[in-house]
Design a protein around this nucleic acid. Structure first.
Lengths: 132, 132
DNA sequence: CCTCTATATTGACGGCTTTCGATTCAAGGC
DNA sequence: GCCTTGAATCGAAAGCCGTCAATATAGAGG
């Protein structure tokens, strides 16, 4: 699961980046390149229930309501969050897929043995299976 | 080592981001938010010797020499690369520290037991120490 | 149906970014 | 010293971005 994301796309340091892929990635990084959007995304991603109402985010900033709405739109267009209207309110939640892809992209490749052992552990392999 | 980077600064999804830290991080993400800079950084980071001459990067793009120089400057100001003049030529290399920090920041926290076991494995703890 | 509240959209303004041509600076070779 | 080559800086033009006030839309409740 996590390992597949990392293996499907070469990381930043594994080979020179192709033009098309660089453009794709730059779009997402650009969405993260604003303090307000970073705080919004963090607010949403760190929320326990997984959802945050706009009515709760707007007063957390010294910005107008349209500005917050604009930033949320950009985060949504970058594939980082999604939303749903429920009555008068709109709720946002995080989509972890793109974030995980970015993390994998930025992660500098470690030694092969370390990666293998670590991921065996994450996947849930028992210690007996790892060492005879 | 890797674990310390992750633990010193709370990740995106662990708690709402503070204003100051969001501004810091946004600066780096903004530097990554351009296809040309992403390709430049990838070219540098993926190079085997670790160093790339400007004279090699400039012709790889359909852009003027001052423009490439400008992008390299932004990457350097973001703490992602550094350079040194050697005779007539200037060589750039990647500084992995900030990249690793970003990757840790973006990585969504896994279940506690998984993390513990995985990092024990990475650090090199024997299986006997992990399970009694 | 009208009103009220919550959110999104529109239009405009100032500032920042990307890009270029022209120039400058640094180092080597003659 | 003077010229050549590689790279950085300067100054300007075009476009994009973050922000706001004003307006539009969606739904709830009388």
């Amino acid at each position: 699961m996590v390992g597949q994301d990392a293996s499907c796309c070469p990381g930043l340091a594994s080979a020179p980046l192709a033009d098309v892929r660089a453009t794709e990635l730059a779009k997402v990084f650009k969405a993260l390149g604003d303090p307000v959007r970073l705080r919004l995304l963090s607010m949403i991603a760190s929320r326990d229930g997984g959802e945050v109402c706009v009515c709760e985010m707007t007063p957390a900033f010294d910005l107008s309501q349209p500005t917050i709405s604009h930033h949320l739109k950009l985060l949504r267009q970058a594939g980082l969050i999604d939303c749903e209207r429920r009555g008068t309110w709109v709720y946002y939640w995080a989509l972890p897929g793109v974030l995980d892809q970015l993390a994998a992209f930025l992660t500098t490749p470690r030694a092969v043995t370390e990666v293998t052992v670590a991921e065996a552990a994450v996947v849930g392999v028992t210690t007996a299976e790892v060492t005879p």
